[in-house]
Design a protein around this nucleic acid. Structure first.
Lengths: 197, 197
DNA sequence: GAGCTACTATGACGACTGTCATAGCGAGGG
DNA sequence: CCCTCGCTATGACAGTCGTCATAGTAGCTC
């Protein structure tokens, strides 16, 4: 998850996502992003002439791709994939981070939605696209595990909703309890939808 | 949900919650709160000497109580309460609002968590208390419906997590799809945990 | 070397923000 | 009448924000 060998533009997008994860969109300043990325302040208007809205949008697109890549990676690492196994891996990524690095950061897409859904149509749409980019591979994976097509997308939405909500509750409580709970309670329901699993 | 007949102090707390619901904590200014409440600006420092942190904290406490009251109200309105019925009512409150008034607002507790969990310990704790004040009556209700004590709290956490996540997804998508999905998919699982329901 | 292009550097602008200081109001009680 | 007390009113402060204007540098090509 490190990003210091790429170009300054990518580093700023990455840093924006990281800072939004921690403090939300409004509390993340452009100067902070440049400083966090080790990039010159003057590069902001050069690479992002669309201003903060463009930078946030690209950070969300980055987050959507990242989440989708993680899903693919989880699947590749499982010799015998099951819905509960995939969900457990998705949840486990968050419990691992929280136990290792503390509860400072959440999901950047959720943060952008909370801060900007009512004020910036462009950012709201970027968040929706990020959720879509994340939901699609999860639904496809469920289908590949034998879940009927008609239920794959609803179950993927359930998985992502429960995960997002549990992230919020866990950060508020500073306890991974909510995350481990949703993984444990939802596992059997998910596996029951995949007959040949 | 109107609050114009109470005193100015209560109105400001209520207005703070409403504005946080829409724009997050950072984008909600103290002057905006006073204006929205129709209260004089000078009253802010008089009623909330602890500043913005105090006002946000009281708004979250208000939100926690409000959510708990709604749970009690839902239960009272059901002649034969079931877990899926309660969850459906909780979700329905949000789908109703979104279809009636648009997707401008989310949950103030989630918004405060996203914006302040890493920056204000007092606000983070207020959010955790609000979640606890909401979870407890839900868990108690489940127990009253026949859910074993050991599973009531985990299931209540699952309900609230799924609801909170679905709210975020629904606001991003400007579509109640995620909300109706979690209600439909989670209903049978919840009822299966209440043998005598 | 001139000229063009990509990128960097820096100061300024106006519009906010939360907080504070100070003063003013009106009613109630001595 | 005066004094206090709850509440209001308003201007100011220091700080930060996103954005812009302008200038400067490095590297490339002709």
């Amino acid at each position: 998850m490190a990003g210091s060998e790429r170009g300054p533009r990518e580093r700023m997008v990455f840093s924006a996502a990281q800072l939004i994860r921690r403090h939300g969109v409004d509390a993340t300043g452009m100067r902070d992003v440049a400083a966090h990325a080790g990039a010159p302040r003057g590069s902001l208007q050069h690479y992002f002439p669309g201003g903060k809205e463009q930078l946030v949008g690209e950070a969300l697109r980055w987050a959507g791709r990242y989440a989708a890549d993680r899903v693919a990676r989880f699947l590749a690492a499982m010799e015998r994939p099951t819905p509960s196994g995939l969900f457990g891996a998705m949840v486990g990524q968050w419990t691992d981070e929280y136990e290792r690095a503390g509860f400072a950061a959440g999901c950047p897409v959720a943060a952008a939605t909370v801060d900007c859904a009512a004020s910036s149509e462009a950012t709201r749409k970027a968040a929706a696209d990020a959720f879509a980019a994340w939901t699609r591979p999860v639904a496809d994976a469920l289908t590949g595990m034998g879940v009927p097509e008609a239920r794959s997308e609803p179950l993927a939405t359930l998985m992502i909703s429960a995960l997002e909500g549990a992230i919020v509750v866990a950060r508020a409580e500073r306890d991974v309890r909510a995350l481990t709970t949703v993984a444990r309670e939802l596992g059997p329901l998910l596996d029951a939808a995949a007959p040949r699993a």
